[in-house]
């Protein structure tokens, strides 16, 4: 079986988008290109936000084929890892389900199988999750309200790379902040195997209330495309698990 590369965008935000295209629509586009969009919504510690302001979080992940979670700052590290891993399993399971449907018929999914069979299939999914290559593009909201949350975000991301780098498969991380100085989204960290490199150049805050989430996701999609044009990522580059 050939190894494939999973592609994920991890969006970390604390509020609603207010500039540019609908982020959920852009996320759906990303999904079409084989990129999963996961969203983490950070809640205010004093419970002051309006609940429907963060509805967007769930919608983006739903149309991006990913996982979403609302979380308070102190649980961010664990959540970032949980969401990333859950999304990996979900994507891989999606592929396996497709294969299953071809074998068993169109209305069969894993839930229709007896627990024993399910166990055997999950073992395969778990094996794939451990050995596949992974590319995570982190998209951090750096609008003014994120001010006191950024140190926690940084810690959570370094922790994520510790966890993922314990896998057998290879990892690449990239990070964009939005809004950027001149553009909607700007690169802070180019594709690299570790997150430690980000320590020095962690995003500075942008003042002002613009949150161009949609355009930022679009820019993130381009980063995946550009990378495979400019630099080869091993011989398996550009191949998805569908071909596995």
């Amino acid at each position: 079986m050939k190894k494939g590369t999973l592609k994920q965008i991890l969006l970390i935000t604390d509020g609603c988008s207010n500039k540019g295209e609908d982020p959920a629509a852009t996320a759906a586009l990303a999904r079409e290109q084989g990129i999963t969009v996961n969203v983490i919504g950070i809640l205010e510690d004093d419970h002051s936000e309006e609940p429907d302001g963060l509805m967007e979080v769930e919608n983006i992940a739903l149309s991006g084929g990913g996982v979403s979670q609302l979380v308070y700052q102190q649980a961010l590290s664990q959540t970032v890892q949980m969401v990333t891993k859950q999304a990996m399993t979900q994507t891989l399971q999606g592929f396996v389900n497709l294969e299953l449907q071809q074998i068993l018929g169109s209305d069969q999914t894993m839930e229709d199988l007896a627990p024993d069979k399910r166990g055997e299939i999950m073992e395969v999914v778990e094996d794939m999750g451990e050995t596949c290559d992974l590319e995570v593009l982190v998209l951090v909201d750096t609008s003014a309200s994120m001010h006191d949350k950024l140190p926690t975000v940084k810690e959570a991301l370094i922790d994520l790379s510790i966890s993922l780098n314990a896998r057998i498969g290879r990892n690449r991380f990239c990070m964009l902040q939005f809004p950027g100085k001149r553009r909607d989204a700007e690169k802070i960290l180019d594709w690299s195997p570790k997150f430690d490199a980000v320590s020095n150049s962690f995003p500075k805050l942008m003042s002002g209330g613009v949150t161009p989430t949609g355009p930022a996701i679009r820019e993130a999609m381009h980063q995946f495309g550009r990378k495979s044009l400019l630099r080869s990522f091993g011989r398996n580059d550009g191949q998805d698990l569908e071909q596995a």
Partner: peptide
């Protein structure tokens, strides 16, 4: 040989910066 699936920070050597999360 794989990556640790679940851990609790206090007991996790990765959290303390004293090693990897490899099983």
């Amino acid at each position: 040989g794989r990556a640790i699936k679940e851990y609790t920070e206090f007991y996790d050597r990765g959290y303390w910066g004293m090693g990897s999360r490899k099983a």
